[in-house]
Amino acid sequence: MSPQHSKPVRHIPWGKWLLISYLVILHAMMAIMLARYGLPLSVRIKLGLISANTPFYESMLIYQHSVDTSLPDGTVVFLGDSITQGLANVAVAPNSVNYGIGGQSTSQLHDSLRNYPSLPRAKAIVLTIGINDFLQRGERGVAQRLARIDQALPAHVPLIWNAVMPVAPAQADLSGVAQANAEIKRLCAQRPQCTYVDTWPLLADASGLIRPAYFLPDGIHLSPEGYRVWIVALRKHTQP
């Protein structure tokens, strides 16, 4: 038998070692940065980590994030859907910002909360969310999504949590909305510094039907008079 010859050990040139070390350090630094600051908003949207299902929603998230990065401490932050977006927030609290987005659901709001790094420094958070889950027939699991929003919001910041707004009976299952509001009221009662604002006695009659003067013809969005009534109620909880 012919003797076996061992293959010579190939040494990696020092230049390649330097390149490998550089790449390892670079990836480690990127991992640390991502762990600390998270992925950029535009990347999270593209990866589907935030359900920006329309160009409008995506553009609103990006715009609001750019505003929030320079927001001063002690601002009252409004979160919600188109009903919040249409609110003259400065009529409620002069030092405030409106982050309402038309069409926003509970799952979208939960996924986008990291978009607002100012929330832990806010004077208060005014939250109105949930009606789009019913309008879009996605109300199944809404109680669990409301609970996740509750857990994600900073516990030390006062929360003014509005009921899911009344709408015309043809638009949504009002019994389901009532159940969602019972869950909001329960979550708020268990949370420190939380005020539940029941908007139904303000905007609907004793039978639960909307007051026509307070709503637009679609039976969903508030009229100017409806907003005035809501603003008066909110002022009681945001102003000394």
Rank of each mutant, 00 (worst) to 15 (best):
Gln108Trp: 05
Asn162Asp: 09
Pro169Ile: 02
Ile220Met: 00
Trp200His: 07
Leu71Arg: 15
Gln193Cys: 03
Val24Arg: 08
Arg140Tyr: 13
Arg36Gln: 12
Gly226Ser: 00
Ser21Tyr: 10
Leu127Gly: 05
Ser175Glu: 15
Leu209Arg: 04
Leu159Tyr: 00
Ala182Gln: 15
Val197Ile: 09
Asn115Asp: 09
Arg114Leu: 14
Gln190Thr: 10
Cys194Asp: 01
Leu119Tyr: 06
Ala182Ser: 06
Leu61Glu: 06
Ser223Tyr: 05
Val232Gln: 14
Glu139Ala: 15
Ala172His: 04
Gly130His: 14
Leu159Asn: 01
Ala143Pro: 13
Gly38Lys: 03
Pro158Ile: 01
Thr75Glu: 04
Tyr227Asn: 13
Ala147Met: 10
Ile25Phe: 15
Ser107Glu: 15
Leu222His: 01
Glu183Trp: 11
Val197Asp: 01
Ala93His: 08
His221Val: 07
Asn53Ser: 09
Ala233Gly: 06
Tyr57Ala: 11
Pro13Phe: 09
Leu87Tyr: 10
Phe56Arg: 07
Gly226Asp: 01
Lys236Asp: 08
Ile101Gly: 01
His11Val: 15
Leu79Asp: 00
Leu222Ala: 01
Ala189Lys: 11
Gly80Thr: 08
Pro154Ser: 04
Glu58Phe: 05
Ala213Gln: 06
Asn98Gly: 12
Pro192Cys: 06
Gly100Arg: 07
Ala233Arg: 11
Ala93Tyr: 03
Val167Glu: 04
Leu49Asp: 05
Pro94Tyr: 02
Ser21Trp: 10
Asp173Met: 01
Val157Lys: 07
Gln144Cys: 09
Leu216His: 02
Gly74Cys: 06
Gly138Phe: 14
Leu146Tyr: 12
Gly102Trp: 11
Ile50Gly: 03
Phe78Trp: 06
Gly86Phe: 04
Ala180Tyr: 04
Leu127Ile: 09
Val76Cys: 02
Leu34Ala: 03
